[in-house]
Amino acid sequence: MSELILEAGAVAKTFGIGPARIPVLRAVDLALAAGESLAIRGESGSGKSTLLHLLAGLDVPDAGWIRWGASAPDPARRSRYLGLVFQSFHLVPELDALGNVLLAARMLGAPDVATRQRAEALLGQVGLAGRARHLPAQLSGGERQRVAVARALINRPRLLLADEPTGNLDEHTGEAVIDLLVGLCAATGTALVLVTHNAAHAARCRSTRTLHEGVLH
């Protein structure tokens, strides 16, 4: 069996205070090996984003456990171990496309020539070779999301977590972004967790699971 990149067992998360506490995740189990892709579907408010934040180590579960490979999520390892793609792109407006991609690399130290070349190559792979010096405000929504994908992959992560990456895009552009995500992950052997509403997009992943009433089916 391939090396496990991501594991979660009996993960539970509750929000609210006192009697108004709402369990969002009850007992989530999942495992993802290198090169695998998993789509997580579910209704709005079902806890998909919450699960993704827990898997990314941005939040901590009330119960259960999560492993990145052999160890627990560690913020210090995050920039090297995983890449994140958000629905709202979250690009830094003051940085151009290349600067945004390199920002993730800068978290690991000043980028060398090879890293710069890799960032430019990634922008080329996402179809933005000629837009490297454009600011986010000068890019369309689809282009911004492609910059975000390139940024998520710049550090050669073992795991890529994408939270509704096509949520703010039209169907055609969304398709293109999913093509990129799935294609690049497959090409680089990066494990992918894709949170999406879209059945067609989910179908592009090797497996699909649905989050319903706090349990991953």
């Binding site: 210090a76 090297r80 979250h90």
Partner: peptide
């Protein structure tokens, strides 16, 4: 605020 959240998500420490 969201950019600061992004920095954290990218691996920036609180000190950073």
């Amino acid at each position: 605020t969201r950019e600061i959240g992004l920095l954290g998500a990218l691996g920036a420490s609180r000190r950073g």
